[in-house]
Computed example of a mutant assay.
Amino acid sequence: MEETPRLVASDIDGTLLRDDRTLSPHTAAVLTRISAAGTPVVLVTGRPIRWLKLVYDQLDKPLPAVCANGAVVYDPDADEVLRADPLAPELLAEVARRLRAEVPGVSFAVEIVDSREMRHEAHYPLRWDADDDAIRAVDTPEELVEVPAVKLLARAGDQDPDRFTQVVAGALAGLAEATHSSYSGLVEISASGVTKAAGLAWYCHRLGVDAADVLAFGDMPNDVPMLTWAGRAVAVSNAHRAVLEIADEVTGANSVDGVATYLEKVFGTA
Score class of each variant (00 low, 15 high):
Val168Ser: 02
Val167Glu: 06
Glu146Asn: 03
Pro86Ala: 02
Glu143Thr: 11
Val30Glu: 04
Gly157Ile: 13
Thr195Phe: 11
Val81Leu: 05
Val55Arg: 07
Arg100Asn: 02
Val250Lys: 04
Thr261Tyr: 12
Leu54Phe: 15
Ala253Trp: 00
Ala78Ile: 07
Thr165Ser: 02
Thr45Arg: 12
Ala198Phe: 11
Val150Thr: 02
Glu117Asp: 14
Ala9Thr: 10
Val95Thr: 05
Ala211Met: 13
Glu80Asn: 13
Leu63Ser: 01
Glu249Lys: 09
His180Met: 14
Gly268Arg: 03
Val236Arg: 03
Ala178Asp: 03
Glu143Ala: 15
Pro104Leu: 04
Asp19Thr: 12
Asp213Arg: 14
Val73Asn: 00
Ala130Thr: 14
Arg18Pro: 02
Arg100Gly: 05
Leu153Gln: 08
Pro148Glu: 04
Leu23Trp: 10
Ser255Leu: 06
Ala28Lys: 07
Ser24Leu: 10
Val66Ala: 06
Arg98Gly: 09
Phe108Leu: 09
Val145Trp: 08
Val243Pro: 10
Val168Arg: 01
Arg127Met: 12
Arg241Tyr: 06
Gly46Ile: 04
His123Cys: 08
Lys53Glu: 15
Val209Leu: 08
Thr251Phe: 11
Val41Glu: 09
Val113Phe: 14
Val266Ser: 00
Cys67Pro: 01
Arg100Leu: 14
Asp77Pro: 00
Glu143His: 11
Pro76Asp: 01
Val243Trp: 13
Ser237Tyr: 09
Asn238Lys: 01
Val243Glu: 04
Ala149Ser: 05
Val55His: 12
Phe164Trp: 09
Leu23Asn: 03
Thr228Glu: 15
Phe164Ser: 03
Thr32Phe: 15
Trp202Gln: 02
Asn69Trp: 14
Pro64Arg: 05
Glu146Ser: 12
Ala96Ser: 10
Gly46Gln: 06
Val106Arg: 00
Tyr183Arg: 03
Ala253Pro: 12
Val187Thr: 07
Asp219Val: 00
Ser35Pro: 07
Trp202Met: 04
Thr39Tyr: 14
His123Phe: 10
His205Tyr: 06
Leu59Glu: 01
Ala260Cys: 11
Met118Ile: 13
Asp114Gln: 07
Val243Ile: 10
Arg232Lys: 13
Val256Ala: 06
Pro40Phe: 06
Ser190Met: 14
Val8Glu: 14
Leu92Lys: 05
Arg50Trp: 10
Ala78Pro: 08
Leu7Cys: 15
Asp19Pro: 11
Glu249Ser: 08
Val95Asp: 04
Pro25Trp: 12
Val145Arg: 01
Ala71Ile: 06
Gly268Glu: 04
Ile112Trp: 01
Val30Phe: 08
Ala71Tyr: 00
Asp248Lys: 08
Val147Tyr: 02
Ala233Val: 05
Val209Trp: 07
Leu144Ile: 06
Val150Trp: 04
Met118Leu: 15
Ala78Glu: 15
Asp79Gln: 11
